[in-house]
Design a protein around this nucleic acid. Structure first.
Lengths: 144, 144
DNA sequence: CTGCCACTTCAAGTCGACTTGAAGTCAAGG
DNA sequence: CCTTGACTTCAAGTCGACTTGAAGTGGCAG
């Protein structure tokens, strides 16, 4: 398969595939002239990468999860640690979601008069709510 | 108060305060010479900004939540929308967390042999799991 | 054999939220 | 009055994950 077919069948842009290869996240099985050739195993790799990304691992971390042999060598403690990280995030997001819903429904003249809102405010100021970057960017498939 | 006191009392670096002012997220009440002077109301503003950031709003969105009068004018529909976004994110994170925990515990010889892991893999590949950027960056107070 | 165009490389650009650095100003303590 | 150093501005740098653009190459249909 050449790069465009991998791109078409995986949904991952060719530029990203080249980028991933450069970062040693995927490997081509050879060249035809200049052109990369990929084997079907690349799809599993791309799946694992997508999974890792979705779990919140960086590309560098994901790169570390493959042995030089090519097979995944996944540290179970790392998975557990990430699961716990996610748990903490989930708790924060739940608090935030509930706070937002309350604020949306609250009939106090100003949000500043609402005790629930003020509690949330204090939590945010104290950094309890994770301070920065939760993201939950909604997936725009064609990013214009 | 000058900027260093606001920084000290809020925990927000002076560089960030200048940046926020430039982005019209906060306002100083005047100058003494060149130096900015802030009133105490800046702390409430900073709290609201922290809250908005924790909820996943961008600085631009947060800037839009204040009237030119300075007081928050928060659209309840926006709060509800964000709450629903958070809900979706929470569902994804829960699935991911459970998948990670299972993968960590699973005794299959390779993760590829584990049905649960494979299910997760398919979900990630299909984009169901939000594909990119969940972040949940743990807050490092002193970022070196 | 030729020409097209999908591929290639490499450097640079993008985005958001800041931080850092250089060069300059000036309020206040001695 | 003079020095000090905390402040100021403005430009540029950072980080991660890619994307974009320019310039070049070469596989293959005609």
């Amino acid at each position: 398969m050449d790069i465009s077919e991998v791109a078409r069948r995986s949904g991952v842009p060719a530029s990203t595939l080249r980028f991933y290869e450069e970062k040693r996240l995927i490997a081509s099985i050879g060249r035809r002239g200049l052109r990369r050739l990929f084997g079907p195993e690349v799809f599993e790799r791309l799946g694992l990468i997508a999974l890792g990304r979705a779990a919140g691992f960086s590309l560098a971390e994901i790169a570390g999860m493959f042995g030089p042999d090519g097979r995944p060598r996944i540290d179970r403690r790392m998975l557990t640690a990430k699961a716990e990280e996610l748990d903490a995030t989930i708790r924060q997001l739940r608090a935030m979601r509930d706070g937002l819903r309350h604020a949306a429904a609250c009939r106090a003249p100003s949000h500043m008069q609402c005790p629930t809102f003020r509690r949330l405010l204090r939590a945010a100021a104290s950094g309890e709510l994770g301070g920065r970057s939760i993201d939950h960017q909604i997936d725009r498939k064609i990013p214009r």
